[in-house]
Design a protein around this nucleic acid. Structure first.
Length: 140
DNA sequence: GCCAACGTTGGC
DNA sequence: GCCAACGTTGGC
């Protein structure tokens, strides 16, 4: 199983809104960056991702599961190559892990979140995943 | 094919 | 509100 981190501005799409969609999940739409798109296309059903609130909060607030693999983004112009996956909320972090906390943890200094701050869909290593789950008080 | 200009993201 | 990072566009 692979692990990921997906970012959303809570004003546009928040964890609470994701939770309301339940087990059926919701399209992760609007990705317009090729690196992010490639990551979406690598996601498999059952993969997990951290749900990160950018701009407001700047913290990982929950864990989602990929419930449908990539398919065309209905919000894209016809003929454009953008894709979505469907993700469903799995569990909230008992204690959100903030960007500040991640920066303060030497083991997490190589996270894409810090290295490529603008990438909205990014991979997370097994070690990073386990550590953040522990910090956040979730099984993952 | 290079690079300046410009737009967007996202932290501060 | 500012600015760094970085992607895209368009002139040459």
């Amino acid at each position: 199983m692979a692990y990921w981190l997906i970012k959303s501005e809570p004003d546009a799409w928040s964890w609470d809104m994701q939770v309301k969609k339940g087990a059926k999940g919701e399209l992760w739409s609007g990705v317009r960056n090729h690196t992010a798109k490639l990551n979406l296309m690598k996601m498999k059903k059952g993969d997990r991702a951290f749900f990160y609130h950018s701009n407001v909060g700047k913290e990982i607030v929950g864990v989602v599961e990929v419930v449908r693999e990539h398919h065309p983004d209905p919000t894209a112009e016809t003929g454009d190559p953008w894709v979505v996956v469907d993700v469903a909320a799995r569990e909230p972090l008992r204690k959100p892990v903030t960007l500040e906390t991640i920066k303060a943890e030497p083991k997490l200094k190589d996270m894409a979140l810090l290295r490529q701050s603008r990438l909205s869909v990014q991979p997370v290593t097994d070690a990073e995943w386990k550590l953040i789950c522990k910090m956040g008080g979730v099984k993952g």
